[in-house]
Design a protein around this nucleic acid. Structure first.
Ligand SMILES: [Mn+2]
Ligand SMILES: [Mn+2]
Ligand SMILES: [Mn+2]
Ligand SMILES: [Mn+2]
Lengths: 243, 243
DNA sequence: GTTAGAATTTAGCCAAGACTAAATTTTGAA
DNA sequence: TTCAAAATTTAGTCTTGGCTAAATTCTAAC
């Protein structure tokens, strides 16, 4: 049973992951979008796309875009699994705040052996969500569906449970944490200001906050509050606590 | 306060560490020894030595050998610190056996941020020894002296405490673990067979074992038993337990 | 003191993955 | 329908860190 991709470079893994995520969020993957996501030039992206196509991990339609083959998607999901397991592990085992784990996981994901991956999954009890609420693909490559409703979609008056926070920017993540807007928190949608204005929500502590519409669109919710395993480490500080 | 070496590659870090360790154990670092240690060709070693010399991290005397500059040694010690902190963390936090941690740490050591390093050191309570008993350099680059007496040196009849196990080979490490020959264990030296024959020792459980002289020379001891913080995670299995 | 063999360095090559500049293709507005 | 701008690909270059083969230097046995 040969391992076909034991030999992929970190760069290739990042490309596969980025293509996967662009495909999952925006539907397609253009060369420019990929280059932007990876902060490289479009020429570099084309170059790697052709290599991945050569390896049968992606299909390239020149001038039209890329998509992953089944083999490519499988590897992308393994990298995503690594990334999210690491994020959760750093958060749970070391108490590293949710706005700091992404940058660490981005490097560690490429040097995680199968052995270490298993130990971590074991330690965490085979978790299904990372600290941002993103689903962790199973070892077999099964991943939960994306939520379809954001805080910007919920009707005023709705009582929702935060499922996933799509924002990546550390400053925004710290801000949301301070407000108590983290996975599994309950919030009431108070109102949507007109002309794409802010979304007013009331958090569990009774406080009301106005969130930028763009930010609200990155916060995914469920109408019914389904209780889930706690993902967030307990806060250590008493007040003014930054997660 | 510019960080002069934020930009060193993983390869450079491995070279610096290898030069440091050859210097510490054998006194000098020849091109061939370095190439052997890193499992590369002598030509590749020469090549990198010249780059490191260019960067003022090493001094090269053509045809004579290499040595680290103060700056190079500082970086080498940082890499060693990373390596050993990671080994201990994997052992303590995840229960990964001492024969498996080295290979993981070798990859992780190059992607450990300062932030993560600090979190880990904190978690471990600023430890001074890794699971093999190797000293962990302090943040400031201070490292404890090497032990000078091995199991092959101790006089028959001596009661010693294992300080450090220099063997790296996983099979040998598992074997020693099974015998109970781990840092902080007490053993009695029974006898040295002549003609470089095996060293007989009695372990704490009363059993007597004959160790190859070469292996005994890699096991460092202290005459006085100084009690230290426990480094080894408790065994999980009842019997036939491989650490 | 020679000199063969060991150790080391030099020369030349390769693959990965980035870049810029130029060429090509696609697209959307007039 | 045309055609300029945007998107994409091609061409050519660079750096890193490997490699082998050949040249050079060192060393030890004679
Ligand atoms: Mn990455
Ligand atoms: Mn995440
Ligand atoms: Mn290493
Ligand atoms: Mn060690």
């Amino acid at each position: 049973m040969e391992n076909k991709h034991a030999t992929l470079t970190a760069a290739m893994e990042d490309y596969l992951k980025a293509i996967y995520e662009l495909q999952a969020t925006t539907g397609t993957t253009t060369t420019t979008a990929l280059a932007t996501a990876l902060n490289i030039s479009a020429a570099s992206a084309t170059n790697m796309i052709k290599k991945l196509a050569e390896l049968k991990l992606a299909r390239h339609s020149p001038y039209r875009g890329v998509e992953l083959t089944t083999a490519g998607e499988k590897i992308a999901l393994e990298v995503v699994r690594h990334h999210r397991l690491i994020e959760l592990f750093l958060h749970q085992a070391l108490g590293i705040p949710w706005d700091e784990v992404h940058v660490e996981a981005h490097k560690l994901e490429h040097v995680l052996s199968d052995n270490l991956e298993n130990h971590i999954a074991d330690f965490l009890g085979d978790p299904t969500k990372d600290p941002h609420g993103d689903p962790i693909p199973s070892k077999a490559g099964i991943i939960a569906d994306r939520e379809r409703e954001s805080l910007a979609d919920g009707a005023p008056g709705a009582r929702v449970t935060i499922q996933r926070v799509g924002a990546q920017d550390p400053a925004r993540l710290r801000y949301l944490r301070e407000l108590g807007i983290v996975p599994q928190a309950r919030v009431n949608i108070v109102a949507h200001a007109p002309f794409e204005g802010p979304v007013r929500v009331r958090t569990e502590d009774g406080a009301e906050h106005a969130l930028d519409r763009g930010l609200a669109r990155q916060i995914w919710v469920a109408e019914k509050s389904r209780p889930k395993t706690r993902v967030h480490a307990p806060r250590k500080m008493i007040k003014g606590s930054r997660q």
